[in-house]
Design a protein around this nucleic acid. Sequence first.
DNA 1: TAACAGTTTGAATCCAACG
DNA 2: GCGTTGGATTCAAACTGTT
Lengths: 367, 367
Amino acid sequence: MTKTKTTPSAQALPLNTILDGDCIEVMNGLPANSVDLIFADPPYNLQLRGDLHRPDNSQVDAVDDHWDQFASFEAYDRFTQDWLKAARRLLKPNGAIWVIGSYHNIFRVGAALQNAGYWILNDVIWRKSNPMPNFRGKRFTNAHETMIWASKEEGAKYTFNYEALKALNEGVQMRSDWVIPLCTGHERLKDEKGDKAHPTQKPEALLHRVLVGSTNPGDVVLDPFFGTGTTGAVAKMLGRDWIGIEREEAYRKAATARLAKVRKFDREALQVSASKRAEPRVPFGQLVERGMLRPGEALYSPRGKIAKVRADGTLIGEDVKGSIHQVGAHLEGAPSCNGWTYWCFKRDGKTVPIDVLRQQIRAEMQA
Amino acid sequence: MTKTKTTPSAQALPLNTILDGDCIEVMNGLPANSVDLIFADPPYNLQLRGDLHRPDNSQVDAVDDHWDQFASFEAYDRFTQDWLKAARRLLKPNGAIWVIGSYHNIFRVGAALQNAGYWILNDVIWRKSNPMPNFRGKRFTNAHETMIWASKEEGAKYTFNYEALKALNEGVQMRSDWVIPLCTGHERLKDEKGDKAHPTQKPEALLHRVLVGSTNPGDVVLDPFFGTGTTGAVAKMLGRDWIGIEREEAYRKAATARLAKVRKFDREALQVSASKRAEPRVPFGQLVERGMLRPGEALYSPRGKIAKVRADGTLIGEDVKGSIHQVGAHLEGAPSCNGWTYWCFKRDGKTVPIDVLRQQIRAEMQA
DNA sequence: TAACAGTTTGAATCCAACG
DNA sequence: GCGTTGGATTCAAACTGTT
């Protein structure tokens, strides 16, 4: 259902519809100072070279869409400046914007935001619980994306539902790093052939937290890179009005079908942000990094065997090196060994199990 | 102890010392292409907040302060461009840089890095396990800082000790988000009055991971914003040479005292898990030459395919001949194949991977 | 049905030595 | 310098098929 509101400029605001076209042109045709929140997932300008294969030789399905290609950093910057300017015009004085990106583009976007007069409130890290690994072992697993939250200008009275977010976070204030899984399973839209309908569909849990935290029911949320409509879907569930802009027909079609099925106040949608808490895994190497054990220091087995700690958190014994578990198993001639309970270190003449140090770290993490 | 090395430019590199002065001037006085790694913790430019004054000391009109904000950003950008340029000149061709910052400055730094020709390898999130809460409840708890890791240029062969980092992380590859506590307790340097000696002292655990991951023992590490010397302290422990630049005398003094107390770890402890790529290459033909496999002998694939060994160390299958890798890839219809782990031979009725023979040869080479 | 094993997949700037 | 070739490289979660 589409409704319209009258704005100060007397232009109609096409609420709860997907607009077809280039986002800059479309935004320039909408009334100024009319939108409460903008959520933008612009092209990341990935610069992929050749193909990438997994160790099992299967090929990675890369983001090689034409809309992600830019000729140069300069071209990407011009595009970014243009859409950010058009977006800022639409925002109400106390409106705000979220932009998501990766290291390929987010630094340019952040600088452009500041240059355009936006005022950064936080950068928020989406920590992926199940990221794609680095298959060639040449870099760190790319396990996060960055979101920037900014008001229209310094001093604006932006919306921040502190208590709602605190409630979402088991009673403690929400941090700038959010652990949320990738969009997979039933939530991931498929096309007729069963392939993913959009290469970079964002999880609803992410938008849920954004919209609960920085909008109120009845607010107008605009997404200039609507894609398959995650922003619209979550806005609708949460009773916000939304406007999408998307120039690819296939995406508009998928988003339209998706949005028709969405119901306001869907229970499931409210549950998506609930996360389970497990005992955090503590790598032994952290004890070394944190100086709780020093490289070169000796560890002692129950039967008096000795191994030395190395800088990378492995142990070296008489004729064996490896993890605390591997070296323990080797010394005992056992198939496996829990190094945490097996090894001890010495402090002030006393012998102390290393597991004590792990518990210290866990206590810190929970605090 | 100070030592110096002769560089191609015949200028002395003042190793393991703290240099007094403006980092740009000092860096410009050091020899080009002489440093393996730069770790930089530049000023965050927080003085953009609060009252803004023009150079003539008149106060900025709050109504249209965008121009002045932009001017301030411009000044910060010029500073950033200048020190990044000076730093890049110092880097060896395969050198790399790490820069740490917060949302106040990191976007400008990241864009400047890209503009200066650096090639971003990862952005890494330092996730603080014990961040300062947001007291006013107006924003998210600022619980992280961002680090950018970049090589001198695209295609450079940067150092990445993948296996060591994997070992530090309990056997799974290191991700781009690192959970490390703030620098507190006995590690936090205090001045004579008992106040913290430096407002933003970084934890040694952070530098430990950076240096283990992206340098080797004996490398030269430079920190142009040395502060109280965390970079130097960890570099010294890990057997890396270091150079610090710091213009505040109080920080230099604190760092000097700190570094005098630091002890290098045992040589054995600095040995770190190595990649298989570092192992010596063994031509398959050697197995034939040495009589470990005989020409005409059959090798078996996991799925029962057979190929015969030829006198020159190539294989011949049903409709293909070539190296162990080429024939394996062809039989699997795969883009590539590691023939060493793919093929087996038979001895006394048992099926044995040919990689066992390679390991025998490598063991002999070491003896 | 439930438990278990094997398969698939996700915004990726993903090789290096040798001839 | 560049083309060729050897051979190293993956984690979590959802899904599919079998017992």
